[in-house]
Each structure stands twice: as structure tokens, then as C-alpha cells.
Design a protein around this nucleic acid. Structure first.
Lengths: 225, 225
DNA sequence: GTCTATAATCAGATAGAC
DNA sequence: GTCTATCTGATTATAGAC
């Protein structure tokens, strides 16, 4: 996890400099090579986690997918749990970047709805890692990963603020604890209803998202006329 | 699975005869011993599946929990997948029995709400097996298990009929496909929101169920005055 | 840092005596 | 049917050459 933190900060650094690798000093070039490879690893892990889940994903498959030897993988990430954690950090960063794109003039409920839609789109596109909520070693690794926890806290804080604002504005039921609303949003990222409806092949992804958005915000009850 | 089917029908048979084992012929007594042991196995599997999930559950733990040797376990159930399938058959039977207790005079929406509440109570009580939705070998075993599939079909048919009735009576949003409503109900049995709220220890089980019932049927939106 | 080859472990399943 | 002891394969992780 020290590796992760270091590389992440390195990523920010190189991104703020010139884009041409040849104009950079040798260490920066090598660092970019390293980053590119680690990014390829993380993307492979992301795909495999979305496809098969943490337990069914094997490190051999990751290595084969990336096209490097397994031992090389372990030079980058010290354990399978760290691989999964890196993938979670990656999606958390994508989430943070997406939150940044939301227009400031939008209402809290509009932003929340957009985020939930985006999350479900990620899941339907097979880009959302699925981790077992009960694996203890994985939980430990995640909770010990500063980059992940920082990202999770940041996202939760921003969503939490919008939830409370939406409740104050009468858009979200104020009787619900904000934390329960937050959990309900997070749960959309691993909602089996999405998988089931996708497997049934009766609806397009857009229709599935619209359906689950409706059940999530409007509920199953018939709306009053 | 031939074992399962046979034993299940044997269970029905013995249950319809006298309750006293001593008045039964010797074969029936032995069959009852067998059934009792298998029931103990299934209960242990049920607990472990609810606690740790399918992947983290080991056959050694099941054997230790029941207090028999692992090889003996394999005389009853030919594989780990079959163990899980037996547990699922068990809960499906409990569900069918619960459906039978619902008063005929209750409305469809009342029955549905009661069933969803019961399901979430089972989950909170740690009696709901949690299976990975992506494990292919497990899926194969389940789909090949006649007792499970029959139970699933029966439950789905009865719930489906109530859903359509509730939609016709204006209690459930008629614009939602009935199958999507059914999936949404089933998903309550493995809703991570239940776990999260339980772990937070801020609410009693009854409060948690009331919360999720509200978000499920009323949605997150503020209700119109 | 990357590789080949190999350790070390764990878990599902089985052999064979009783 | 139940047991002890074992097999078998898969998987995480590492040693050591280049």
C-alpha cells in the first residue's frame, strides 16, 4: 500500500508536467513506464473482478491477461488483496473525477440521481469490481489502504452533504437517516437486480437503469395520481 | 441430488404416518436417523453460509460443526455444491411453508409486504444463506437440483400472481414489469444495506426492517403531502 | 524488473479398514 | 455409514538466475 500511495502521487506529478516523455529526465520516463504497466494491471484486475468476483479471480489469470509473469506482478503488488484494493482505488478515483464534472448549479437531488445512474452504468458495462462483503482478509487490506479510505471518505462526505441538502429541500424523505440513504446508493453498485435484468435480455441498459432508478427513488408502490 | 429427492419424499411420508418412532418398522427408524443427521448437516451448512458465504465455507468446517468425519459428509452429499443446494432447498421449503400461513383474506400487497419483511428478518437473524451470484459451478448444481428449482418456481409463481394482483388493484406501480418487481423482492434477501445497518448498531432489527421496507416500497423521494 | 521454476498451503474429494 | 489417512489439484507466494 506504500507502493500505491507513492505511485498515485507520482501520477499526479507527471500529469502536471510536459506530456512528452522524451523531454523528461530518465527517472521520469521510467516512472511513466512503471505507471503504464501498473495501469494495465489495474485495468485487467478491474475486468476480472467485475466478471468473476474476487474469489474466482486468480493471480495467474491476471498475469496472463496483462501478459507478464506472475512473479513480476508480485513486484508491483505484494498480495492478491492489494491488487483488488488498487482496483477499488481506481474506481474511487473515477468516481471522484465524475463528481467533479457535475455542474455546480444543479440541485442536490439532480446530482445524486446522476451519480446513481453513472454507477449503475458502470456495473452494467462490466467495469464495476465486485468484492465479497464478508471476506475478512480483503476487508482488512481495504481498511488499511489509505488511498482507498481517503477516496471513500471524500465521496461519502460529498454524497452525504447532497443527501442532507436534498432532504432539506424536500426532495428526499427527511425521515430516513442520511446514512441509510447513502448505503442505499452504494448498494446500487452491486445490485443483483441489474444482473438479472441484464441476463434476461428483455431490456436495454438504458431501460434497466430507468427501471431501477424508478424503484430506487419512487419505490414499488403505485404513485398517487 | 437423487439422494435429496428421495429423502425429501421420505420426509413427507414419515411425517404423514404416526409420530412415534417405536411403532414404525426398523427401516423407517433408520431412515429417521438418517434424516435427523442430514437435517443437522443442513442446519450447519445454513449457518456457515449465512456467516461466511459459499466460498469461505469449507467442508472441513461443516464436518467439524456437525461433529462427524468429512468422509461421512460425502456419503450424504456428493459435493460442496450439493451441500449448498440442500441448504437452499431447506430455506425454500421454509418460504413455502410461510406462504401457506398467510391469511387468504389478506390483500395481495399485504401478503407481499409480509413476505418481504419475513425474508429480511431471516437475513438479519443470520439464517439466510448467501451464495455468490457469479459462481458457475454452484449455479449449475442449483439449476440441476429438481427440489430447488421446483420450490423456486412455486414461490415465484405465487409471488408473481400477487404482484400482478397488487398492480391491478393499484397498490404496486403497474408500469413496472412484474418480473422486475419479483427480482427486487428477491434482492432484499441479500441486501447489503441490511448488513451495513446491522453493523452500525444504531438501530434495532425491527427499525432496520422498517427502514428498508420504506425505501423498498415508498422509495427515497419525499412523499407528497 | 522480468523471467522460469518451485515452494508451501490449503481445500475438495477419495481409499480402504472396521 | 463412519472413521483415519491420504490423494489430487489448484492457488498464493517466492527463490534465484539474467
Amino acid at each position: 500500500m506504500q507502493n500505491l500511495t507513492g505511485y498515485n502521487s507520482a501520477m499526479v506529478t507527471t500529469a502536471s508536467t510536459t506530456a512528452s516523455p522524451t523531454s523528461s529526465p530518465k527517472v521520469s520516463f521510467k516512472a511513466q513506464m512503471l505507471l503504464a504497466r501498473e495501469d494495465a494491471i489495474i485495468q485487467a484486475v478491474n475486468r476480472l473482478l467485475a466478471d468473476k468476483g474476487f474469489d474466482a479471480m486468480t493471480v495467474d489469470q491476471v498475469a496472463a491477461d496483462v501478459g507478464i509473469a506472475k512473479a513480476s506482478l508480485y513486484k508491483h503488488f505484494p498480495s492478491k488483496e492489494d491488487l483488488a484494493a488498487a482496483a477499488m482505488v481506481s474506481v474511487m478515483q473515477r468516481a471522484q473525477a465524475f463528481l467533479d464534472t457535475l455542474p455546480a448549479e444543479a440541485s442536490a437531488i439532480e446530482k445524486l440521481r446522476t451519480v446513481v445512474q453513472w454507477t449503475m452504468g458502470l456495473k452494467l458495462a462490466g467495469e464495476m469490481p465486485s468484492l465479497p462483503s464478508q471476506n475478512s482478509s480483503l476487508r482488512t487490506a481495504l481498511m488499511g489502504n489509505k488511498a482507498y479510505m481517503d477516496g471513500l471518505m471524500d465521496v461519502s462526505d460529498r454524497l452525504g452533504a447532497w443527501i442532507e441538502a436534498a432532504q432539506a429541500q424536500g426532495d428526499i424523505n427527511p425521515k430516513l437517516p442520511a446514512i441509510a440513504v447513502l448505503y442505499t446508493f452504494y448498494a446500487r453498485a452491486c445490485d443483483p437486480v441489474l444482473e438479472f435484468l441484464k441476463m434476461s435480455e428483455l431490456h436495454s441498459h438504458e431501460e434497466i437503469i430507468a427501471l431501477v432508478m424508478s424503484t430506487c427513488f419512487d419505490g414499488l408502490n403505485a404513485r398517487p395520481a
